[in-house]
């Protein structure tokens, strides 16, 4: 028996609290460019969903059009996807969530899809506080059409061709906070730790989560002069906090110092822990969040972290007062009133 251990059973595959392996959260092979920030975001989604033990069958992945919106094919193959039309994912997601209020919507959009063609639907999605995680994979450029500026590109940044952007950017985070989204943050596809924690907190939130994730386009916007490149982000990323997340099902009491750390209790009892890197920033204060974002623009910083959380606001699903059972599967007896109702209405019309 000098050899190794032929009789030892293979190590049990690692599984999450609902008995699924990471593999169960994977999708098709990516067709995006090697090094594309979007692939890193897909990985964070897979990890977060796996770790949170979300049943993939309950998740839907609506998306718009563009490189970002193709990415739902590359993660969570056991979840329904709807790659819809350009800039109109919010309405598709809204319809789907109302049809089945128990679905967990993870919408994937891009900066062109959101801030240009889709800005109207984006605004109204934020207003409604629909339960959805809305991710902008933000690279400041149209990739699939080969490198035109988008509306999140910074003033003065350049295209590969040298063309200078002379219009101001739209700050999707400031806009989302102003309009009524209840969990708003910005991250960077290259900041694994921060994005991972924010993604898990996003899953725990009930309401509209708007995450703007700067995600460099290695082909069209990773050059000198770009403000959405890996290098620029490494130099200018200014985290507001150190973000960590303690899920409700992990019954671990981790001590924290209330003087240096803000604890936000999420809808499901989880805890979002934000270790302050700046004095006095309160992520439950909308006005302060918007002011801080404006300051960051003035200073030329790319502020990241959780800017605003409100875990108590009613969602669009609450407002509509729908049955607990999904509208989609209500039986005929629940949706077709009886003969006596028709008789009554006919009598009123005689």
């Amino acid at each position: 028996m000098a050899t190794s251990t032929p009789d030892r059973p293979a190590p049990a595959p690692k599984i999450n609290r609902i008995g699924l392996a990471v593999l169960d959260y994977r999708g098709g092979k990516t067709t995006l460019c090697a090094g594309c920030g979007h692939n890193a975001i897909s990985e964070r989604i897979i990890d977060a969903m796996y770790e949170m033990g979300v049943p993939p069958e309950r998740v839907i992945k609506p998306s718009g059009i563009g490189c970002s919106s193709k990415s739902p094919a590359y993660f969570m193959g056991r979840s329904h996807s709807f790659n819809a039309v350009h800039g109109r994912m919010p309405s598709v997601a809204t319809g789907a969530v109302l049809a089945n209020r128990h679905l967990i919507a993870l919408g994937v959009s891009g900066d062109g899809d959101t801030a240009s063609i889709g800005v109207g639907q984006f605004i109204h999605l934020m207003r409604r506080n629909l339960p959805i995680i809305y991710i902008i994979e933000d690279n400041g450029v149209y990739g699939l059409t080969k490198g035109q500026f988008s509306a999140t590109a910074d003033m003065g940044s350049t295209l590969k061709t040298g063309v200078i952007n002379d219009l101001p950017p739209i700050d999707t985070c400031a806009m989302a906070i102003t309009l009524g989204a209840t969990f708003v943050g910005r991250s960077f596809s290259g900041d694994k730790k921060q994005l991972h924690a924010m993604m898990k907190a996003a899953i725990a939130h009930n309401g509209t989560v708007m995450l703007d994730v700067v995600s460099p386009c290695v082909t069209f916007n990773d050059h000198e002069g770009s403000t959405k490149s890996y290098k620029y982000m490494k130099d200018h990323d200014e985290p507001l906090q150190e973000v960590s997340f303690v899920p409700a099902f992990e019954d671990i009491a981790i001590d924290y110092d209330p003087g240096t750390t803000i604890d936000v209790t999420m809808h499901d009892g989880s805890h979002l822990r934000l270790r302050k890197l700046e004095e006095d920033f309160d992520p439950t204060n909308r006005i302060q969040a918007i002011t801080r974002l404006n300051e960051a623009h003035e200073k030329g910083e790319v502020l990241t972290g959780v800017f605003y959380v409100n875990s108590k606001a009613p969602t669009f699903v609450d407002l509509l007062n729908m049955t607990e059972e999904p509208l989609a599967t209500l039986p005929e007896s629940a949706v077709r009133p009886g003969r006596e109702v028709l008789e009554q209405v006919m009598e009123e019309l005689r």
């Binding site: 609506p62 709807f82 309405s91 598709v92 809204t94 319809g95 049809a99 109204h124 949706v335």
Partner: peptide, 20 residues
């Protein structure tokens, strides 16, 4: 909805998810 594009978008989303 905010416009007819959103109205039909919601219909399409809801129809896909099984609503009438």
């Amino acid at each position: 909805a905010e416009d007819e594009l959103a109205a039909i978008g919601m219909v399409v989303g809801a129809g896909w998810a099984g609503a009438r």
